[in-house]
Design a protein around this nucleic acid. Sequence first.
RNA 1: GGUGACGUGGCCGAGUGGCUAGGCUGCGGUCUGCAAAACCGCCUACGGAGGUUCGACUCCUCUCGUCACCUCCA
Length: 486
Amino acid sequence: MKIKLYNSLSKTIEEFEPISDNTVRMYSCGPTVYNYAHIGNMRAFLMADLLQRVLRVVGKYDLQWVMNITDIDDKTIRDSRIGSEAWLPEMGEQTESAIDNLKMLTEFYFDSFTEDISSLGIDVEDFYALPAATDYIEEMQTLIKQIIQNGYAYIASGSIYFDVAKWRQSDTYGKLFKIDFDNFKSGTRIDTDEYEREHVSDFVLWKAPKEGEPQWDFEIDGSNYPGRPGWHIECSAMEYELLGLPFDIHTGGVDLKFPHHEDEIAQSKAGYGCEPTNYWVHNDFLEVEGEKMSKSAGNFFTLRDLIKKSLDPLDIRFAMLSAHYRTKYNFTHDGISAARKARMRIQEYIYDLMDDSNSGKNAFDVAKLRDSVFGELGNDMHTPKALANLFVFMNENKAMEADLESKNEMLAFLNELNHIFAIWQFEQRPTTEKLIPSEITKLAEARLQAKKDKNWALADELRAKIIDAGYLIKDSKDAFEIEINS
RNA sequence: GGUGACGUGGCCGAGUGGCUAGGCUGCGGUCUGCAAAACCGCCUACGGAGGUUCGACUCCUCUCGUCACCUCCA
């Protein structure tokens, strides 16, 4: 099935055409590993995951999916400094080497990152590579030299800057983001700390070192310019090395359009002579209870915070996937519990389908359902509509009413769909007996007896105890079922 | 100041010039000793004011409001 995608370059939905027939090459801006990732970051990673799964399952493409790991920037440097308050004992003993310290800190948070995304249902096996920036210093230097040689960068005070004014003479600067050139001060160099509002400026490719910072030698024409890479250059270099240019799709959050992605385009073209990618796909932000979430505002949750509050990460995954990726998603606790119930409803439907003892006579038109659901997923990843179609079908076609063949077709389809959503179990409905403490079961048995004796007062009292203990009791004729109250 | 987005029923969240998604909650019913669960049914919204139109939530103008990016941030 063909896939349609909204391309930030054209600002329209386009039919996706891969560069090579079967393998799609995709690059996603990943985390800066200086802390535990928050759920806003998670939305971006989930969106990339959704896209790569839709490409695989609906589009039937093979994928090479790369997500970069930013391990060198102001924050990783700050937090790995000797004496840093952000240093945790679990990271090990700090050494004299700034680079070693940086690596220890970032590897610690890299591990937490892979744990977090795994719990959210992102399969680390799906990545072609998760490259760390500091493993590509040489490649970045090669690119920078090339940009200098092509005349679009200059050295000043030991740092190397991209010359935006010069670049504008040969190409557009502002492909993703309209830039207010009236307020554009060309030729102004910046060191992020001293950036003035309302002025776009030349951006740094290579930063001269400061005392105690990690630094790498950089030899240009016999002179050494020790320092470290600027923010944008890692993506350009790693894309070139790992995927080759141009590749198919680049993903990231909307906030990265400018300056990060704009600069990435300029750098890659100025150095390699080629823009990085054909399709730019940007997800919108997540808000919390209607408020913008940001690190600086301090109103953010990490995934770990939420798991500690007993939220199931798969409910978070489903909640986020149930909003369109290009709209703002309002993260609320009510929203998560609604998502959980909706998810469980589908899970119950699957359990019913797997229950061979209880089949009906109706033939389901699974092929039509599949077309409508996959059609929506392939239409710029329209998960809300895809899910709506599924729910309408479920309302009209009860699992227990399906004949055996329809049950199997439905299961095959839902299993396929689960290669995208990755939130359901395909096994027999689990017996809860093992999970329920025996004292609770005993209370329930006593209650059943009380019911038989028509001792309603006792029965109600026992039920209250069971509920207080955190369990739900579901009655049927002469029997009961206990569930953990979630 | 520049650029852009958005305002949909109790909440979340789609969408279209007329046929008025979906989920969750709530309410009514069936069931039940009573509940819960399940099943059935109900609740019909589009910030405001104009305009275009046979007809607008959907197009246009104005207006109010919210937000994002332009500075590290998914």
